[in-house]
Amino acid sequence: MPASKRAANRYYSGPPSDHFDGALFFNPGGQLPGRFTDLLKWQFNGQRSKWPAANPSPFARARPAARVDGAGLTITMVGHSTLLVQTAGLNILTDPVWSQRTSPFSFVGPKRANAPGIAFDDLPQIDLVLVSHNHYDHLDLATLKRLKEKHDPLVVTPLGNDTIIAAAVPGMRLAAHDWGDRVEVGAHSAIHVEPAHHWSARGGRDRRMALWAGFVIETPGGKIYFAGDTGFHDGINYRLMAEKHGGFRFAILPIGAYEPRWFMAPQHQNPEEAVQGMKLCGAALAAGCHWGTFQLTDEPMDEPVRKLAGALEAEGLPQECFRALQPGEVWDVP
Rank of each mutant, 00 (worst) to 15 (best):
Q319A: 14
I217Y: 07
D152G: 02
G46T: 06
G316H: 08
P254N: 11
A227F: 03
R146M: 09
H233F: 15
E149R: 09
G228M: 05
F263T: 00
S49T: 08
G277E: 12
G180S: 09
H177L: 00
L83Y: 06
D152S: 11
H197P: 07
S99G: 07
D137W: 03
D178V: 01
G231S: 07
E149V: 03
Q269S: 03
L317F: 08
A227T: 13
V155T: 12
G247E: 13
M278V: 00
A54P: 02
I217A: 10
D332C: 11
R182T: 09
R10I: 15
M172P: 04
T230H: 09
F263S: 01
I118L: 03
G221R: 12
G288Q: 02
G228W: 04
A213P: 07
V216E: 11
L144E: 07
G222I: 04
V330E: 06
P153K: 00
A274R: 03
A88W: 03
N55S: 15
G171I: 09
A176E: 05
G171N: 13
Q276G: 01
E299A: 09
S103T: 12
A115Y: 02
S106H: 11
Q31T: 11
G310Y: 10
G256V: 01
R323L: 12
N270C: 13
A113R: 15
F120W: 03
G160L: 05
C321D: 05
H19F: 14
W42N: 02
V156I: 09
P334C: 12
L317T: 07
S99K: 02
F248I: 01
Y258I: 04
A166M: 09
D162R: 06
R67N: 05
P64M: 04
D178S: 09
E218P: 02
V193M: 06
H177V: 00
K244C: 06
P104V: 11
V129W: 10
P52V: 08
R35V: 01
L240V: 02
A60D: 13
T37D: 15
P96V: 00
P58R: 14
R208V: 01
P334N: 09
Q269P: 07
A324R: 10
S200Y: 05
N134H: 07
D69Q: 13
G22I: 10
T94F: 10
H192Y: 12
A284R: 14
D229F: 02
F226H: 11
P104K: 15
R112L: 06
F36E: 15
D302P: 14
P64H: 00
R208Y: 05
D178K: 10
F232E: 07
F294Y: 14
C289N: 10
G204I: 05
E184D: 14
G186K: 14
Q276A: 14
R112D: 08
W331P: 00
Q43W: 02
A142G: 02
F20R: 13
P104L: 15
W42Y: 08
A190W: 08
A324N: 10
R208S: 03
V305I: 15
A113H: 14
P2N: 13
Y258R: 06
G277N: 12
Q295C: 08
P318Y: 09
G316K: 06
P158Y: 00
V156C: 02
P110C: 08
F248P: 04
H192G: 04
P304G: 12
F120R: 10
E194P: 00
M301V: 13
K148F: 02
L83T: 12
P52F: 11
S132I: 00
G288N: 04
H192N: 08
